[in-house]
C-alpha cells in the first residue's frame, strides 16, 4: 500500500507542462482524438533530444493539427492554409541556425499544400515534417480528402468514396525525402524515438502519424470511438522497418505497416547552393553570416 509519507514530494506538474502554453489548455481537440497524444510525444522527444529550444521554430498550417503551433511554448508560427512548408523553408533559409519543424495535418500538407511539400522534399530543405493523418478534413466538417481510403463515408461522400488515396510514405520517398517513417498514436515510444531521430538528422525528414478522428471519421463509418481505433492500431499494426514504400498503402480497416521505411543521406539544399555558388563565383562568393536574426 501507499504510505502517506510517500506522497509528500509529488512532482508539482506534468513534465511536459513547462513546454506548453497551459493557459490555453484544455485544448480544442475532441475526446479520443490522437493529435494530443502525438503532441505529447513531440514534447517528450524535444525534452529527451536536449535541443536548444531557443533555436526551434514550430510551423503549422490550418486544421485541427494546425493548432499545435498555438499550444507549444516555443517560437511558433500559425500560417495560411497549405503554406506551412513554404513558410518553414523561408525561415530555414533566412536563419539556417534554426531547427524548423512543420507540424500539420494531411489535408493541409498534402491536399492544398501538396505541391509545396513535394518540392521541399525534392530540394531536400532541412525541415522536419510531422504529418498527423486522420484521413479527412476534420476541422471543416469531415469532407473527404486525398488520404481518405476508398469506400469511406464522409460528409462529401455519403455513399462511400471511390477515389484512390495517396500513399504518403511512397509519395515522400519518390519525391526524395531522406527519412520517411510511419507510426500511429498507439506507438508512443517508437514515435518519440522517431521524432528524436529526425531532430538530429539533417535534410528533409517526414513522419506520418496515423490518428483517430472519432467525431468525423470513426463515427460516420461506424467504427467506434477513439479508443476502439487505438485498439485496432494495436491489433492490426505490423512493424516492418525498411519495407518498400510502394507496399505500405492503407485501406479502410486493413493491416497497417508501420516503421522506418527510408533513412538515407543526400546533400542538403543550402549545402548544394553554397557549393554551386562557390564553384561558379570563386572569391566573389561571400558566405552569409551564420544568423541574421540575432
Amino acid at each position: 500500500m501507499i504510505e502517506t509519507e510517500d506522497l509528500v514530494e509529488a512532482p508539482p506538474q506534468n513534465p511536459v507542462e513547462p513546454y506548453l502554453r497551459t493557459d490555453r489548455l484544455p485544448h480544442i481537440w475532441c475526446p479520443g482524438c490522437g493529435i494530443g497524444t502525438s503532441l505529447n510525444c513531440f514534447v517528450r522527444a524535444l525534452i529527451e533530444s536536449k535541443e536548444d529550444l531557443d533555436r526551434l521554430a514550430v510551423v503549422s498550417g490550418i486544421g485541427c493539427s494546425g493548432r499545435v503551433a498555438g499550444y507549444v511554448a516555443f517560437d511558433s508560427f500559425h500560417t495560411t492554409h497549405g503554406r506551412a512548408v513554404p513558410f518553414a523553408t523561408g525561415l530555414k533559409l533566412a536563419n539556417p541556425a534554426l531547427k524548423v519543424v512543420v507540424y500539420s495535418g494531411d489535408g493541409d500538407l498534402f491536399a492544398i499544400g501538396g505541391n509545396h511539400i513535394i518540392h521541399a522534399a525534392r530540394r531536400n530543405v532541412d525541415i522536419k515534417v510531422i504529418c498527423v493523418n486522420n484521413f479527412l478534413y476534420a476541422m471543416t466538417g469531415g469532407q473527404s480528402g486525398p488520404t481518405t481510403p476508398p469506400s469511406s463515408i464522409t460528409t462529401t461522400s455519403p455513399y462511400g468514396g471511390f477515389e484512390p488515396a495517396f500513399n504518403l510514405p511512397h509519395l515522400m520517398d519518390a519525391a526524395g525525402a531522406v527519412y520517411v517513417a510511419r507510426w500511429t498514436t498507439f506507438h508512443v515510444r517508437q514515435l518519440t524515438r522517431a521524432m528524436i531521430e529526425i531532430l538530429h538528422k539533417p535534410g528533409f525528414c517526414f513522419i506520418e502519424v496515423l490518428s483517430p478522428c472519432p467525431t468525423l471519421y470513426e463515427r460516420r463509418n461506424k467504427l467506434g470511438d477513439g479508443l476502439d481505433t487505438m485498439k485496432y492500431y494495436k491489433e492490426k499494426s505490423k512493424i516492418r522497418h525498411g519495407a518498400p514504400t510502394s507496399e505500405v498503402a492503407l485501406d479502410k480497416r486493413g493491416e497497417i505497416i508501420v516503421g522506418k521505411f527510408v533513412d538515407r543521406n543526400r546533400p542538403e539544399y543550402l549545402e548544394l547552393m553554397r557549393a554551386q555558388h562557390r564553384a561558379q563565383l570563386g572569391d566573389r562568393f561571400v558566405e552569409a553570416p551564420a544568423c541574421l536574426c540575432d
Partner: peptide, 8 residues
C-alpha cells in the same frame, strides 16, 4: 499513461 494522454 502520461505518454498516451492527449490532454496532459
Amino acid at each position: 499513461c502520461g505518454m498516451f494522454c492527449p490532454d496532459f
